Simulated assay, not measured.
Amino acid sequence: MRYLRSGPRRRQPEEADVTRGKTLGLRSGEIADRNIRVILEAIRRHGPLTRMELGRHSGLTGPGITNILRRLGEEGLVTSHRRNGVGSGATATEFALRPEGAFSIGVRVRQSRGEAVLVDLSGQVHDRVYFTLVRTRRVDSILSAIEAMLGRHPGLPIIGVGIGSNDWTAEEAGELDAASKLPSSRVENECTTGLLAERTIGTPAPGGGLAMIIIDEDVQAGFLVRGIPYSGVHGRAGNIGDMHTGPDNVPLSTVVGFGALRTLIGDDEFARLLEGQELSSPLLAQWIREAASHLLDPIIAIAGFIAPSVIMIGGDLPRGVIEALIHQLSVERRDTSKRPFLTPWISPMKPASFSGGGVALGAALLPFLNTLLPPVSA
């Protein structure tokens, strides 16, 4: 898209209607890029909006807004129509997002399974596919899934591919980009992409921030602070699976991870869980109790050090299992037979808004954040 600019970008505000930040040091092209993104994000979040309403949300002047709207209209990203006045009969032109103006593909990559989604600019999912991965041939499987998706939706303006993975290598990224017909892929870890999905199209980020815990073969956490993902030194923040937890002081992933769950309930019931079936069995209830007993320790630490407004728990488990785990965590918190004190305040907990923790969906947002919407980090 011709209006997009390259070069360094400054940190953007958390919300589109708080945009009067300093632009000192930005070149004119960078300011134009920033303003275009801010206007598009305001329309995406709050539209339809008139020029006057866009001015209130963005802090930009009328002529600047008019020029940006003209360019967004030429690119097919916004539409306009007349809004009738209330009572006075006056009318004004309002502008709305055109979701089909841009699409993106997001891929969640695990060691043995993958998920790909096709989303439009509003975040609506138009296609979703799950597929098996072989560790040494993951790129081939992902390329096949992407090509099949492109074949089912020919002619769409797809602007890129995002990858959500904790172990995606630079070699795999290079191989995928060399073989793909789409622009270079963007990569983030799973918790970060899950948080981006919540921040951008899920639950609005609370003022105190957001934490996400994803349960899979391992257990990991991610943090959104003032609207920006926090990954720590060398991306090490959130590696809670190796923490020694619970009364027996064992690594968290060995009790809460999928390996422990599969061993306890058996392969057949585990496969049914991943298919989304809600099960009720004594062995599953036992895993929920043991998982809550160990997961409470890192949750207390997260609440004590970061104090997010909410802690979300997600992954491939059915929502009913996640809800039962959250309920058991509240029970464990009050159980002084295992801990000789009542657990202090912890953040409210709730299931993630999207299946799989929203990892594939958040990965699909990466190309949008790279080209069209305000980036979430410097």
Results as ranks from 00 to 15, higher is better:
48 P>M: 04
155 G>P: 08
349 M>K: 09
296 L>M: 14
350 K>V: 08
77 L>A: 03
197 A>G: 04
219 V>M: 04
184 S>R: 11
95 F>P: 00
336 T>L: 01
288 I>Y: 09
14 E>H: 07
130 Y>W: 11
120 D>E: 09
137 R>T: 08
248 D>A: 07
312 M>S: 01
144 S>K: 09
24 L>C: 02
62 G>K: 10
134 V>D: 06
184 S>M: 14
218 D>K: 07
146 I>W: 02
170 A>M: 04
291 A>N: 02
210 L>Y: 04
173 A>S: 05
31 I>R: 00
111 Q>M: 12
185 S>H: 08
25 G>W: 01
310 V>S: 15
364 A>E: 05
340 P>T: 01
328 Q>P: 14
353 S>L: 07
114 G>T: 13
8 P>W: 13
66 T>A: 03
45 R>D: 08
365 L>P: 02
17 D>T: 00
68 I>M: 08
114 G>W: 13
168 W>T: 03
5 R>A: 11
229 P>I: 15
81 H>A: 15
201 I>L: 03
323 E>F: 09
101 G>A: 03
62 G>S: 07
256 V>K: 03
4 L>E: 05
267 D>R: 13
341 F>K: 11
291 A>Q: 00
143 L>A: 14
262 R>V: 12
148 A>N: 15
168 W>E: 01
318 P>V: 07
53 E>S: 07
18 V>M: 14
253 S>H: 11
359 V>Y: 15
229 P>C: 13
127 D>C: 07
255 V>R: 12
57 H>E: 05
18 V>T: 15
202 G>D: 03
113 R>P: 15
149 M>E: 05
215 I>W: 02
279 L>I: 13
362 G>I: 01
52 M>D: 06
205 A>E: 06
143 L>G: 12
125 V>H: 05
373 L>T: 01
95 F>K: 08
239 N>P: 10
294 H>F: 00
135 R>S: 14
238 G>S: 13
164 G>S: 14
209 G>A: 14
232 G>C: 00
111 Q>G: 12
109 V>A: 02
283 L>Q: 11
72 L>V: 09
98 R>C: 13
277 Q>R: 10
152 R>G: 02
188 E>V: 09
215 I>A: 04
99 P>M: 01
237 A>V: 13
264 L>W: 13
207 G>T: 11
53 E>D: 10
319 R>W: 15
21 G>M: 06
322 I>L: 05
162 G>E: 03
117 V>F: 11
338 K>T: 08
29 G>W: 00
117 V>T: 09
285 A>S: 14
145 A>C: 08
204 P>K: 04
109 V>G: 00
223 F>I: 10
321 V>H: 05
176 L>K: 03
308 P>L: 11
57 H>F: 15
